[in-house]
Design a protein around this nucleic acid. Structure first.
Lengths: 194, 194
DNA sequence: TTAATCTATTGACCTGCATCAATAGTATTT
DNA sequence: AAATACTATTGATGCAGGTCAATAGATTAA
């Protein structure tokens, strides 16, 4: 699982063997069972998690106790409550495992240290943040401009793998729909396709 | 207007006089009249614009010809279609001036050059992107969890200055509402306050 | 193997917001 | 000063999607 993490990093930037050693010494490997929390609302987010196996989600819970999924993170992705991680404020997000998973955790201190010790890692994070920003901008654009049906089919076409692994009501939650509505949208799609 | 820009940068990172000279030589100063486009959908976004005076907006137009505002950028803010700027793909966003404005433009080549020539500027952008990502994440959270009324009052409390300067139908557009609906929400708020 | 939980579907009903249309005040232009 | 565009409000009406409730298959736990 550590290898998986180091590969991810070195796919994007060049790491010497020494760099890899520094990484290895500054991260924590962790397993999570299905439904186990990595982070619960109100805690301080101590880690950025890299998913080497399985799939996690981050979500928030509104006043009516409805869950809204912010992000799915399958193998190869990072997940955290970045705001809490950076500011050390209480988190508003929950993060848990949809499947039992394996993670590589980077603490705040380790993250800072690594950015300093491995300057290329700073660059890596620059790209990550920029990419994450662009992705969210696209998501907002889609929220504004696409019909419910289009949002769903686009999601299916972009992340077919993820969509097959997570229960349907979580897809609904990600799209800002109730499970009932998504069920009806799907029905309509099937009928129209025949 | 160039000073305003240099101050913005040097509020966040330390610039030598030499650095400032490099910046000055690598940016373009530009004025925009009210309603004038900086960027039109389908063009390639050549610049990141810093607003030294006035206020701009970026928005997209859906199939039904409704505008959806992605961002307002008053003095001290940056605006662009970052996706188009980086990838040199055709832009999906429009950017225009809500008030007549003064800008400092940084081209892609200049941006790359500056990041290289002034390493602190690379750091500055790292922070910008990270901050922009966090801001969008909050926006999505609010879209999910707040009622229409709450979204509006929160916007008013966070950006009272901007909200006073832009027409109401643009606020509606930013919130994903029709002008009629926002008008009714406002009415209800006044009545409830009395 | 039997509960208990999780998941998806379907129906009946309700509501928040969009749509369409009319009015009127306020800026801009010429 | 008149004409044109822009902006905000209000009313009437329709619909997409939420809510509540029932059913049933599929997982998971005891």
């Amino acid at each position: 699982m550590l290898d998986n993490f180091l590969n991810k990093i070195s796919n994007n930037i060049t790491l010497t063997e020494a760099d890899k050693a520094v990484f290895s010494q500054n991260v924590i490997v962790k397993k999570l069972r299905k439904r186990q929390y990595l982070l619960q609302e109100g805690e301080i987010c101590k880690y950025v998690a890299y998913v080497s196996k399985g799939i996690l989600r981050s979500y928030l819970v509104d006043k009516k106790n409805n869950e809204h999924i912010i992000q799915f993170a399958p193998e190869g992705w990072f997940i955290s409550d970045l705001n809490s991680f950076i500011s050390e404020d209480y988190s508003t997000l929950n993060i848990d495992a949809i499947e039992s998973s394996e993670l590589v955790l980077v603490s705040r201190a380790a993250h800072l240290h690594l950015e300093h010790a491995v300057p290329e890692f700073f660059k890596f994070n620059y790209m990550q943040y920029r990419g994450a920003y662009l992705a969210l901008q696209k998501r907002i654009s889609d929220m504004f401009t696409l019909s419910t049906e289009e949002k769903y089919t686009k999601l299916l076409s972009i992340y077919p793998d993820i969509m097959q692994r997570v229960p349907q009501h979580m897809i609904a939650s990600y799209l800002g729909l109730t499970p009932e509505t998504l069920s009806r949208v799907r029905k309509k799609l099937v009928v129209n396709k025949v």
